[in-house]
């Protein structure tokens, strides 16, 4: 099982490698990747440095070009694929079909991973991407239950990568319009959910208020934990009650499922968080490295150690880490 880790900067990439990442995924510093934040990600100079460090340590480098190209600027997305191919990256992570076609044709030797943003949830969908574009691996959406993941794994001819840990989206991977509804920018088009320029935090009488493009989306009391300022995690008055109408701020944590995922033949575990600091990357990568090593040694005998759980929950958005969609009983 390969441990695939996030890096938004060179120090984060080093932290990932030092703590046991098998592969690191990065993005270029523009809207071609879904973590398009100021000061984050890699320009050409740093991408080269990243590659050098990865090669020195015998790990793999993936480049996420996982947003959808805009009709008038497709060239920018093509250029991103060319840059990744020029780097000799071990794979590109793509969601846009047009871009996949381009990559296949122009760089037949470049391995393609289907991004979670493409939201392929069935065996025929995966098979379609394999036949059309020769994808080597697909990252499975977090909407799937463990049972569904197992069924897919049994039927799939491509490698499967599953999310291990990280902040949770509302589970409409690749299809969420909430951010563009309020801010005019969305993760799929602009590479950013709730862009920072639209976010405002304000201390008011009732607590810490968050506004998105002027719209109040939450208010945190003195001792309440805060979350990322996304519309899906806001609290609204529904049926006279103020509540998380869509999703609570939680982080996904599928560590307890590692033995089942391994038995199902899942090839890789992905950790979320290119927007986080090297300190986060170091802590969670070390934790998952230990856990995966333990699963590899002990198989079904595996259990989650308290110290691992503590480290993960300390770093997670929302106080609790849950199994997320993996155990939604209604599925």
């Amino acid at each position: 099982m390969e441990l695939v880790c996030p890096a938004g900067s060179l120090p984060a990439l080093e932290a990932a490698v030092d703590n046991g990442a098998d592969a690191v995924y990065i993005g270029f510093n523009d809207e071609t990747n879904a973590r398009n934040f100021g000061g984050l990600n890699f320009n050409d100079k740093n991408a080269l440095r990243a590659l050098e460090r990865i090669r020195n340590r015998g790990r793999k480098l993936f480049v996420a070009i996982n947003t959808y190209a805009k009709p008038d600027s497709f060239a920018r997305w093509q250029a991103a694929v060319d840059r990744a191919a020029g780097l000799n990256a071990d794979a590109v992570i793509l969601a846009d079909i047009g871009l996949m076609g381009y990559a296949r044709e122009r760089h037949p030797e470049l391995a393609l991973h289907l991004s979670v943003q493409a939201s392929a949830t069935s065996a025929p969908a995966l098979e379609f991407y394999r036949q059309q574009f020769g994808i080597r691996r697909a990252v499975l959406p977090r909407v799937l239950s463990l049972k569904q993941v197992q069924q897919l794994a049994a039927a799939s001819k491509v490698e499967l990568e599953v999310f291990g840990f990280g902040s949770l989206c509302i589970m409409a991977e690749g299809r969420c319009h909430l951010s563009s509804y309020v801010t005019g920018e969305s993760p799929n088009q602009n590479g950013v959910c709730s862009p920072a320029k639209t976010v405002e935090w304000r201390n008011a009488a009732g607590g810490l208020e968050t506004r998105l493009n002027g719209v109040l989306i939450d208010r945190f009391a003195e001792n309440e934990n805060a979350g990322y300022p996304t519309l899906c995690k806001g609290r609204f008055i529904v049926d006279g009650k103020r509540q998380h109408a869509l999703e609570e701020p939680t982080s996904l944590n599928s560590m307890a499922l590692l033995p089942e995922l391994k038995a199902a033949g899942i090839q890789a575990i992905k950790l979320e968080g290119r927007q986080r600091s090297p300190a986060y990357v170091a802590q969670i990568v070390r934790t998952w490295r230990e856990a995966i090593d333990e699963v590899l040694q002990r198989g079904a005998d595996f259990s989650v150690k308290d110290s691992w759980r503590d480290t993960l929950s300390k770093n997670s958005e929302g106080k609790q880490t849950t199994l997320g969609a993996y155990d939604r009983p209604w599925q």
Binding site: S9, G38, L40, V199, W201, S277
Partner: peptide, 14 residues
């Protein structure tokens, strides 16, 4: 302006 704070954080991290 959240963007300034966030960019500072990212620059320092890098």
């Amino acid at each position: 302006q959240t963007e300034i704070g966030l960019t500072v954080k990212n620059r320092l991290d890098a």
